[in-house]
Each structure stands twice: as structure tokens, then as C-alpha cells.
Simulated scan of single mutants.
Amino acid sequence: MSSESPLPNLPGSGISLPDTPLISGALDHLKKHTSPTVVNHCIRSAYFAILLSQKIPHKSTEPLDVELIVFATIMHDLGWATDKSLLSKDKRFEVDGANMARNYIEEAKIAVGWDKHRTQLMWDAIALHTSPSFALHKEPEVMLAHIGITADFLGPNLPGDLITIKENKEIVDAFPRLGFKSELLEIMCGLCAFKPETTYDNFVGDFGVEYGLDGKGTGKEEFAKQRLAFSMPRFVYPAIGASEQDED
């Protein structure tokens, strides 16, 4: 990796990221609040998103907002901040990350041209990055942020043969995984322990059910019971009947 830029051009894949004060500031902010492993994951996601923007057609007549895509992917996992005092107890990690990125935009003197619409689009890209059933049907920037982040998990196995082994290797060599698989397990299980009710209706809870609250199986049976109790069939659906009785 080049010593001249923290986000170097990758000639083999033909990828370059915008070198703007906002992107540099976002990268510094990410490094301040997350681990080196998470930093590299977010940077790889940005490279994948831009690579895929060159391969996936989109219907918008407007040019892609590349700075927004890169900013969103770099900041998308602020909800994994190492300082838990920065995180909410009642919101999903994706929403924490989106809120933190929005606060950064609103406070940054270098956020030029970020009107309400652009800021909302960035918020959506982060908040929906784990929800393909929403993200894939929104604006191209939101869609590409989601696919770029997903690509860092799947690499050449991303459906559609969109990423070659060579392209994947160049990005991962530039920003190594640094034990991402084991750290991801620790983070997901930690969220199940730290704010369980934010994990019951999404994939994070799957980690608690499978691996417990510490990644080693501790508390997984009780967590599974609690998660089931909050499910639609167990919690919401019966409430309709109770409401109907009250209305009679």
C-alpha cells in the first residue's frame, strides 16, 4: 500500500477513490472510533462499491454521487464504535452509525454541498446497508453502498460474477482482513449482550442464537427464548386479538 495516500489508486482494478477533505476527515474519524480491523473492512467496502459502480447499470439519469458512496461506506460501521458510551441502547447498530455519520456531516466545516436531500441519502445508505430488500430498490448510491459492503463478505462469490479473484485479491492485499471473521463474531455477540432488544428482529440476533452472548455459547438458550418471545407470531400477532376484544 502506498505511503503517500491512505486511499491509494489500485491500478489492477482501475479503482480510484475521491481525494477530498471530507473523505480524509471521515477516514480519520473512523480510525478514531473503531478498530483497525473494522477500518480496513470499511475501506475495502468503499473500493468494492466503486468497482461495482463501473459494472452494475443504474436507471438514474443523474451522475453517481461518488463522494457520497465512499463517505457512506467508510462510515457505515460507526455503530461498532469501541467506546460504547457513543452508542445508543435502543437503536440498531446501523441506525447508530447513520446518526453518527449525519452528526459528523452537520458539524464538519468541510462538508460542502451537503443539503438535506444528500444527507438523507447518506443516512439511508448506512441505515439500510444490511437490508437488501430495501437497499436494492432505492437510489443507486444506496444500492451500491449495500452491494459494496456485501462484496467484502462474499468477494468473488458475489452473485453475478461481478468480482474477479484478481480484483478481490488486490483490494484485500491493500487492506488486509486482520482477523475480520473472529472480530465480527465478537462484535455481533457483543451487540446481543449490550442491547438485545435491538437484535431480535434482524440478523444480529442469529449470532446470539447460534453463538451466545460471548461467541462461545454462553446464554444462547435464554437469548433464543427472549428473541422468540418478541417475534411477530408470539408478540405482535396475539396483540391484535387482544385489541379486538377491547374494541368489542
Rank of each mutant, 00 (worst) to 15 (best):
L191S: 05
R177F: 09
I171C: 06
I171S: 07
E186F: 00
T164K: 01
E186V: 04
K169T: 12
G179C: 05
T164N: 08
A151E: 03
A174P: 06
F153H: 08
T164C: 06
G155F: 06
I163V: 15
L178R: 09
E183C: 06
G179S: 04
K166Q: 15
K169R: 12
F175R: 03
F194G: 05
L191V: 09
A193L: 10
A174C: 15
E186D: 07
I163A: 03
V172Q: 09
E170W: 07
T150I: 00
L184S: 11
I163M: 09
L185T: 15
A174G: 02
G190H: 04
D161S: 12
K181I: 09
T164W: 03
M188H: 08
L178G: 02
R177N: 05
S182R: 15
A174I: 03
I187R: 02
L162G: 08
G179D: 05
M188A: 13
I165F: 05
E183Q: 14
K166W: 00
E167S: 10
E167H: 08
C189G: 02
P159G: 00
I187V: 15
K166P: 00
P159V: 01
K169D: 15
L191E: 14
D152K: 04
L185N: 14
F194D: 15
C192V: 01
L154T: 02
L154I: 01
I171P: 02
F180Q: 13
G179H: 07
T164Y: 11
L154D: 00
G190W: 10
F153Y: 12
P176H: 06
L185C: 11
I171W: 04
T164I: 13
E167P: 02
E167R: 04
N168Q: 08
A193E: 13
L154Q: 11
G190T: 10
L184I: 01
A193S: 13
K166A: 15
G155W: 01
T164S: 15
I171A: 02
E167M: 11
G160R: 12
P159E: 05
E183N: 06
E183P: 06
D152M: 07
N157A: 14
N157D: 15
F194M: 08
L185R: 14
V172P: 01
F153A: 11
E170G: 03
E186G: 10
F180T: 08
D173E: 13
L154R: 06
A174K: 01
G179T: 05
G190E: 09
S182P: 00
K181H: 11
N157S: 12
L158G: 03
S182G: 00
M188N: 09
C189Q: 08
F194R: 12
P156N: 01
D152H: 14
N157R: 13
P156S: 02
N157F: 07
I165L: 12
F153P: 01
T164Q: 04
N157K: 13
F175A: 06
N168F: 05
E183L: 14
C192I: 03
L154H: 05
K166T: 15
E183R: 13
G160N: 09
F180W: 14
I163F: 07
L185Y: 04
E183S: 07
L185P: 07
K166M: 08
L185V: 15
R177K: 13
A151C: 04
L185S: 13
F175P: 06
D152S: 06
G179M: 04
N168E: 01
T164V: 09
C192D: 10
E186P: 00
D152P: 00
